[in-house]
Simulated assay, not measured.
Amino acid sequence: MNSAPQDLLLPDSRVNAVALPKVSLHDHLDGGLRPQTILELADEVGLELPADDAEALGRWIADASDSGSLVEYLKTFDITTGVMQTREGLGRVAREFVQDLAADGVIYGEVRWAPEQHLTRGLSLDEVVEAVQEGIEAGIDDARSGGHRIRVGQLVTAMRHADRSLEIAELAVRHRHRGVVGFDFAGAEDGFPPGRARTAFDYLASEFLPVTVHAGEAAGLESIRGALIDGRALRLGHGVRIAEDIVTEREDAESTYVTVGPIAQWVKDQQIPLELSPSSNLQTGAIEAWGEDLIDHPFDLLYQLGFRVTVNTDNRLMSATTLSRELVLLAEAFGYDLSDLEVFQLNAAEAAFLPLEDREELADRISDGFARA
């Protein structure tokens, strides 16, 4: 099992972020592989790689991901999805994914992935979902054996450019009581609005399956509008560009005036969760309108204005990160303390695609864990 970094101490604190109970909402299965696992699985399926040892491969993927372009960032997934085409490969990746979440102190996670991308070696859509679920359950058992209680649900993802959204929505509903907790809409955001999949979203609404939509990352406010109206999104995947609908004007050294536009006001008033992923947002250029460093990220602006912000990794491999590391980076950039980090986790617990009673129990575990920190 990979272990999370053990030196992630929060600023001005003896608290190790790894020890804090955390909720992970936006974490891609094909973005969380261990480099060594990629090497071994690639050898089994005959996939050529750009490096032949784990350290070099991990470094190559991180460098290739740090391009400032979502399109270039997504190309690294050709490698990871390439080794996830067999039942054994899918099961192993899912099992290790859960092991790594547990090692990072995650107590509830939602793992998103696109079954349609894992069919090249003859598996059916249902078979790949079953293989991933078997791996998840094995990983949960491993964590339990190590004294850690974790719960993990699948978010079945439809790729917005592939025009299979209704088929994938039906797949998600078929497996809703066998590990699937919701539906995601991902891929090349710009040029592929949720309105193209309106039939799928209508179907999901009729079945009361919760939906999150990637929006406000590679495209702006119209993408967010489409996610809310056409996609009926209960959460926004990233959603960082909602800040384009917010204007701040400094009157003097002590006074700043903020004007919130109609889309941002709706997202705020309805407390629609934002699945923000700080390191990834820097890598893909999602925040280039505000700057190139973490201190420029609109995260703090959104938090201070009362938006329901959550902290996520997006792709742990591509960003060479963990959820604990993302919390430490935010604390260093914006001066957050434990009470702020607890708010982010409680926000995520409230946003989880779980029954109300389960979310309340999750919130209690978080509060108890932070109280002991």
Rank of each mutant, 00 (worst) to 15 (best):
M1Y: 06
L8K: 06
L10Y: 07
R14P: 01
V18L: 11
L20E: 08
P21N: 09
K22W: 06
V23P: 07
V23I: 09
D27A: 03
H28R: 09
D30T: 11
D30I: 06
G32M: 03
G32T: 01
Q36N: 12
Q36D: 15
T37N: 06
L39C: 06
A42E: 00
G46Q: 09
L47Q: 10
E48W: 08
A54I: 13
I61K: 06
I61D: 09
D63N: 03
A64E: 13
T76W: 12
T76R: 14
G82M: 10
G82H: 08
V83K: 10
T86R: 15
R87Y: 07
R87D: 03
E88F: 11
G91P: 05
R92Y: 07
Q99F: 01
A102D: 08
A103L: 04
G105H: 07
V106H: 15
I107N: 07
V111R: 14
W113F: 01
A114G: 03
E116S: 00
H118D: 02
R121T: 00
E134Q: 12
I136Y: 05
A138E: 10
D142V: 03
G147E: 13
R149A: 12
G153M: 13
Q154S: 12
Q154A: 14
V156G: 02
H161E: 03
R164F: 11
H177G: 14
G182V: 11
A186D: 06
D190F: 15
G195D: 10
R196V: 05
A197I: 05
L204G: 07
F208A: 15
L209C: 06
V211Q: 02
V213Y: 06
H214E: 15
G216C: 12
L221T: 00
R225T: 01
G231Y: 14
G231N: 00
R232A: 09
A233W: 14
G237V: 13
I242P: 07
D245I: 02
D245V: 13
D245R: 04
V247Y: 02
G261V: 15
G261C: 15
P262H: 09
V267W: 15
D269F: 04
Q270N: 05
Q270L: 00
P273K: 03
P273L: 03
I287A: 00
L294H: 13
D296G: 09
D300R: 06
L301I: 04
Y303C: 13
Y303G: 10
Y303L: 01
Q304E: 07
T313C: 07
T313Y: 00
D314R: 04
D314V: 05
L317R: 15
A320I: 02
L323D: 15
L329I: 03
A333G: 07
V343M: 04
F344T: 14
L354P: 00
E360N: 10
L362V: 14
L362N: 07
R365G: 15
G369I: 14
